[in-house]
Amino acid sequence: MKAERIVNTSVVAALVLFPLWAWMTDAPFLITLATKAVIFALAGVGLNIALGIGGLVSLGHAAFFGLGGYAMGILASHAQAYDPIFNAPFVLEGTKSMPVIWLVAIISSGLAALAIGALSLRTSGVYFIMITLAFGQMLYYFSISWPAYGGEDGLSIYVRNSFPGMNTLDPIQYYVICVALLFAVLLFTSRLARAPFGLALGAARQSPLRVKTVGISPYKLQLVAFTISGMITGLAGALFADLNRFVSPTMFSWQLSGEIIVFILIGGTARLFGPVVGAIVFVLLEHLLGGLSEYWHIYLGLLLLLIVLFARGGLIGLLAGKERSHD
């Protein structure tokens, strides 16, 4: 456990120092790359609550990522709309305020996760995986057939949304916002895992029958965990859409759901910083190998294969030992 804390501290130091170095050397692209890794890490931390603590393998978590992104896109698009007669800006029900957009993204994703979880959790195993995939694909095809917000072409937002007291167009300032949210969610996840709810959820993963015998419903525990997981992933989706100033149906794709699972597997399932390490490795491989070949996923697959065979605790488990912890 002490070794894992050292690894976690090193990851935190890297998240703080690397962007500062990139800013001092005037390399805004590297800051944007780090921001992307942080947002993917946030999505992974969200899924890890359901997968790592609750044992729920969801292949449809991109549904919540996409809902968060479209919440941002829809609100921002209405805020930047123009009157066709007077050519003057006006606001419908839209907003450019990040805190408001985050709240809407979290609530909409949470409600969707509650509804999807309520149905999906009546199954288990491969059936649960497939029903979450089905819901994700339903939203994917719905977004394609929604011409009001770009349909298959997606929706562009020309100016990044605002945050009080900060210039969000400055890469380092937007990075600070994203990494602060990541640290806040990591702290929340750490407390959740050690709280009575987290301990009961872990027990329900290991032995649902024993949890039932003490009067606790595994279904309710898992539903709450799935809902919280969806809310955090929705927040990540809103941040990702703001980073790119663009939303598209690909945010709902099952491939993205698979990538979020890959983040967790690379870093270490049920490890607090597992998704963070996995997201960083994924973005680094995409950046370094993507320019060499469009088939760079082959190398990612080889890495994942080696981890599954020889380091089932992920990279953090390989470095820190075999104990599982959310400290």
Rank of each mutant, 00 (worst) to 15 (best):
L318R: 12
L42V: 10
G291L: 09
S145W: 10
P28N: 14
K220H: 14
P171M: 09
T95D: 02
A148M: 07
L265E: 01
A105Y: 02
F183M: 11
F282R: 00
A105D: 03
A22C: 12
L30D: 04
M166K: 10
A193H: 06
S190C: 02
R205F: 05
L187W: 13
L47I: 09
L15S: 05
F273T: 02
F226L: 12
V185L: 08
F273L: 11
W146Q: 07
S229N: 05
L235K: 00
S58A: 15
Y140L: 11
H297L: 09
L285K: 06
I74V: 12
N87K: 14
A105Q: 03
D170P: 04
T95P: 03
A311M: 08
F142K: 08
L288E: 13
P147E: 14
I177N: 02
G278P: 07
A279V: 11
V159Q: 14
W23T: 07
L133P: 00
F163N: 04
L199N: 10
V224L: 12
M231P: 04
L47T: 07
V11N: 01
L42W: 06
P19A: 06
I157P: 03
I261G: 04
K36M: 13
F310C: 03
N244K: 09
M72C: 03
Q80D: 11
V276Y: 02
R191F: 05
G291C: 09
I260L: 07
A320F: 04
T213M: 15
G54P: 05
W146N: 04
F252E: 00
P84E: 14
L288H: 12
W254N: 01
A37V: 09
T123R: 08
L265I: 14
A204S: 15
L243M: 15
L30V: 04
G117L: 00
I261V: 15
D153N: 14
L292S: 12
L239E: 00
A81K: 14
G55V: 09
F86R: 12
V179C: 11
L292P: 09
Y82N: 07
M166Q: 10
I101A: 06
V224P: 05
L285S: 06
V38S: 00
K36C: 02
T95K: 11
G68H: 06
L309K: 11
I31L: 08
E323L: 04
M166V: 12
K36H: 14
F197N: 02
V283Q: 03
G136H: 05
F240E: 08
G46V: 07
M130R: 05
L256V: 10
A14Q: 03
K220L: 10
V159M: 11
A43Q: 02
P99I: 05
A88E: 15
L302P: 01
G151D: 10
M231I: 01
H61L: 05
S143T: 14
I6N: 10
P84C: 14
I316M: 07
N244D: 11
S248C: 09
P208A: 13
L30H: 12
Y140P: 01
V277I: 11
V277E: 00
V100D: 04
G73A: 15
I116V: 13
L201V: 04
R122D: 08
G215E: 12
Q255S: 11
G68R: 04
T32Q: 09
M98N: 07
G278V: 04
W102G: 00
P164N: 10
G198W: 02
I116M: 12
I131C: 01
S190N: 05
G215D: 10
Q173P: 07
A134R: 01
A34G: 15
D242H: 10
